[in-house]
Write a protein that binds this DNA or RNA. Structure first.
Length: 274
DNA sequence: ATAAGGCCCTGACCGC
DNA sequence: TGCGGTCAGGGCCTTA
């Protein structure tokens, strides 16, 4: 499912196809993806606009338009944006099509229909409450320490909380905690300075390597050209079937539920909180 | 500030 | 073969 490394990859790979292009038409096959404004207004306001810039904030993709507005897309769990020639018929799970002025089309494929789109005057209306970008220079161990200080919430839940830090979801949270050797149920305010530094290093390392690997192709993640990523081949705990072994200790990876989300960890590498 | 539950969705999976 | 039930999960919302 698209988390920060997948959205970053999609954004980077979409740039050559869409930058400077104009949206000549839009086909909405599932109106409810449009959160704001109405599907009708979304379509009429978007058609004719040029695409000036692509950026990412957390798991959101932001397209700056010539009219001054921004198109914001969230792929949620199963969304992908696929570049197709105009003549290609949409396959079963395509929910929206952005027709471009050069004969290409962007197909928004989303089997589970969880994806969302907004057309707003200002990106902050949608992404304003997000926490820091974990790969930006201003996300320092000190910043992480300050944000953890007053939080008596399991660290796994904090990592997945987009207002705590942006872009990390269930699978990268598990990988990060495994790499940092921190148990998912440890409370935010219980981490030592050393553990916070380990955690900070792990967040940046896991995300950076996953971006180099073009994301993790589990579930329905595809790159704009239909290709896959290979980040999941490095996964140690995330998306492991029960019974798989920790590569360090050779003992089974355990699964617990934290805040309603499946959580995988090694009980030896990541010792139980007292 | 925190916790728990529901909602949106569909494919995969399970037991019968 | 097919049916019904359950689960997964990001973000957001409501209720405690």
């Amino acid at each position: 499912m698209p988390e920060l490394p997948e959205v970053e990859t999609i954004k980077n790979e979409l740039v050559p196809y869409v930058l400077g292009r104009r949206i000549s038409d839009i086909t909405l096959l599932w109106d409810r993806m449009v959160r704001q404004p109405s599907a009708e207004e979304f379509r009429s306001q978007l058609v004719g606009q040029g695409i000036l810039e692509l950026s990412r904030r957390g798991k959101y993709m932001i397209l700056s338009l010539t009219g001054g507005e921004v198109l914001i897309i969230h792929l949620k769990m199963t969304g992908s944006l696929l570049v197709k020639p105009e003549a290609v018929e949409p396959e079963k799970y395509v929910r929206a099509i952005f027709h471009l002025d050069n004969g290409d089309a962007i197909h928004f494929r989303d089997p589970r229909k969880f994806g969302s789109m907004w057309l707003v005057p200002n990106a902050s209306l949608v992404v304003g409450k997000l926490g820091p970008e974990p790969l930006e220079p201003d996300f320092t161990p000190q910043v992480l320490a300050e944000r953890l200080e007053k939080r008596s919430v399991p660290i796994k839940a904090l990592l997945c909380d987009q207002s705590f830090v942006a872009g990390i979801g269930n699978m990268y949270a598990d990988e990060v905690l495994y790499a940092a050797k921190i148990h998912p149920l440890r409370l935010g305010n219980s981490l030592s300075r050393e553990e916070i530094e380990q955690l900070h290093r792990a967040i940046q390392l896991i995300l950076r390597v996953a971006i180099e690997d073009k994301g993790a192709s589990v579930e329905d993640y595809f790159r704009p050209d239909g290709g896959v990523g290979k980040a999941h081949f490095r996964f140690q705990v995330a998306h492991r079937l029960s019974g798989e072994l920790c590569p360090i200790h050779g003992i089974p990876i355990e699964r617990i539920v934290v805040r309603g989300r499946g959580t995988y960890f090694c009980p030896r590498c990541q010792p139980q909180p007292v």
